[in-house]
Amino acid sequence: MRTPLALAAGLAAAAALVALPHFLGRSGVYLLSYWVVFVVATMGLNLTVGYAGQKSLGHAAFFGIGAYTVAILMKAGLSFWLGLPLAALLCFASGIVVGFPALRVQAIYLAFATLGFNTAAWLFMRNEEWLTGGTFGIKDIARPSLFGVSFDGHRAYYYLCLAVAAILAALLYGLLRSPWGKAFTALRDNPIRAESLGVDVRGYTLLAFAIGAAYAGVAGALFAPLLEFIDPAPFSVGASIMMYLMVVVGGPGYFFGPMLGAAVGVVLPEWLRFAQDWYLFVFGAAVVLLMIWLPDGLLSIPGRLRARREARAASAARAAAAARLDGGGR
């Protein structure tokens, strides 16, 4: 929020998010809630991939662990409000475990290791029917209530998701502005230099995974009651790849990147349905074009405009200086 203009835009966006459900039907509110859930998940992935530079392709596994934790606990009669923090905690712990390979390998090898983890987690969800309902999934997952306020309605549940997302976004914002945040980016930009400057590379790498995973866990915990049903399908390797796509398209390492990225991944295909049979083809092509146009993601637009403006100003200044010099020489 560098300028008052940006602040105003942010406030307007927040107001729109609060007001929007009242102008939408059930399906519109549902789509919006779906988007918010993916914003939470990709905020976590943005920390791992965008800020800390770890190539993780297993984020959907954490998302699934969160969803199953809540679903299983609620089916066992426990409260959603107990399930939510437990989901986050469990994902935090698994994030640390998955982070360990990252201490030894990087880039494609890390992508491979995280893909492998995702495959294993997915198989577990599908095979262990006694716990997860296997391929048939878990149905009739109730939506929670708090202090007598029920979040069963579609708008009410949306506001719950939005509130959780807002809290998590604020936490992440604080974290990124703290010395921890600086350590994460140092890790991404130059791990060797970071190490020599005294950053605990081991610890921060693991933390980047663990915190990212915890966000996915919370998103999963919101996802299960949103659908009121879960099966292993949305937690596959393919889903992880889509989340990675969302982060990169939105702008990795930009705070608001996941909001735009998740919109591209969740809302854009729905919006493209007017293209009928062709809508997924158009979606794929749009992603390719978007990357070619904005390789650093959608949120690189403001920076790019600024750079262009500065370049223009600089060249104008140069031209003026040259003219002065010319004039002086004559």
Binding site: G25, R26, S27, P234
Partner: peptide, 19 residues
């Protein structure tokens, strides 16, 4: 409409049909 074989999408589409 296409569900992409994804329950999450199918739910939204069914709500839309209801709407």
């Amino acid at each position: 409409v296409d569900t992409q074989s994804n329950p999450g999408v199918a739910k939204g589409l069914t709500q839309k049909a209801v709407d």
